[in-house]
Simulated scan of single mutants.
Amino acid sequence: MPRVRELEVFRLVLPFGRRSETLLVKLTDQGGMTGWGEATSPPPKTWSKLEESLAALLIGVDWEHPDAVPSGESAVDMACWDLWTRMRGMPLAEAIGGTRTSLMATVRLTPDPSVESLVARVNQQVCAGYGHVTLDVRPGWDVEPVRAVRNAYPALTLAVDCGNAYTELGQLVALDSYGLEVIERPFAVTDASTHASLQDQVTASVAVEIGSTAELDDYLTLRAAKVLLLRPATFPSLTEVRRAHDRAVAAGWDIQCAGGQGAGLARAATVAVASLPGCTLPCDVTQPPRQNQIVTPIVGADGGVIAVPLTQAGLGHDVDEARLRRFAKDSFRT
């Protein structure tokens, strides 16, 4: 039974790419075992909430399972799962019900200065072993680049991520003629009815990213999509993630896991979740630059395939604490 004797929280500003902020939680139990968790792009009050209330929840308190720690914070929940599974010598993927030993990966490509340079980047990724490519599209950068990539690679499996940027169906229906597998996040997540209208008019599967089972239930009722874009870091707990997975699978939906942000721990949790039986679409852990990661081995794809660490306990990755402390903007220990 875990009993935490010390906790540390670190605030990092990652040095490469968009210099995003991430929070890391380290739990140490009475025997010296540690568990780690991460919250990527946390809400503004997360730091103060952890500083004011985390110690009372965890220090010196016995708990039998991570679900017994009602923190409501994904980083704390992840750290509890990591500690609990390490104490049992069990991989996190196995503990939550994962069955896959490896995952297909998609690579995400942002808009380019020109269509020609985008096609060249796609060529680089195909040569690197990727058989699935996701193109970021926006109003004004959609039909032309998708057409060019499809003409260059007629057999390549393509998806588009719209970033919730569209308000009308027209351009998205036009994109469907290029043999897309998935149209991700086309409209504002609150607009389930327009998602349903789009799904009625396209052969591609519409994918919606939600952060709670209540939101998912609304989409299931309206049959407003066919794919759940599951980002574990946006849920308060891995148990809630598994609940969303089970509901989507029961409804006949496919699931794609995504989680490329942060310093590596959230990516590792994404890989564990993507090993669940219903996560049938390629996993996305491609962003941001690998230099931002403070875990070993690095979480990522090799030749378009991601290995699930089923021979290591917990998240399956160790934290480089020296590198972490160089990145840390602030920290506290209790």
Rank of each mutant, 00 (worst) to 15 (best):
E52T: 02
H195P: 14
A79H: 06
H317M: 07
A207N: 10
I298S: 09
G140T: 07
D191R: 13
E38V: 09
H195N: 15
E6K: 11
M1F: 06
A274I: 06
P288W: 14
A56R: 08
K49Y: 13
G72F: 02
P288M: 03
Y166I: 00
R325F: 12
L83S: 04
G60T: 01
A268V: 01
N292V: 00
W81P: 00
Y166L: 04
E168V: 07
L92W: 00
A79Y: 07
S53P: 01
R11I: 02
T34F: 11
W84V: 00
G97E: 02
V143P: 04
R147C: 13
A269L: 02
G163Y: 07
R323F: 05
W84G: 00
D320P: 13
D176M: 08
W47T: 10
E168Y: 00
V249H: 11
R121S: 12
A174M: 03
Q199I: 00
Y153C: 01
V299G: 02
L23D: 09
R323C: 02
P288G: 12
P15I: 00
W47F: 12
V299S: 06
G140Q: 15
T110I: 13
Y166N: 03
G300Q: 15
T46C: 14
R19E: 12
L158D: 07
A274M: 00
M90N: 13
V182F: 03
V143K: 09
Q261Y: 13
T28K: 07
R19Y: 07
R150M: 04
D77H: 13
P154G: 15
S53F: 08
S197E: 10
T106P: 04
R242T: 10
D191Q: 14
S102A: 12
W47M: 13
I59K: 04
T213I: 04
R326D: 02
L220N: 06
W84T: 02
A268Q: 08
A39S: 09
G32R: 07
L281K: 03
A165D: 03
R243W: 11
D302K: 10
L50V: 04
R150A: 06
V202T: 10
G314I: 06
A196M: 08
A274Q: 08
L180S: 14
P154C: 13
R150I: 04
A188F: 15
P91Y: 08
L281C: 03
A55I: 05
L14Y: 02
D77P: 13
P236I: 01
S20K: 11
A328E: 05
L169K: 04
G97R: 03
T85D: 06
L118A: 11
C279S: 00
S177F: 05
A56H: 15
G98S: 15
L230T: 08
G260P: 04
A95L: 03
V146E: 01
F235I: 11
L92E: 04
E181F: 01
F235D: 09
V202G: 09
N123W: 07
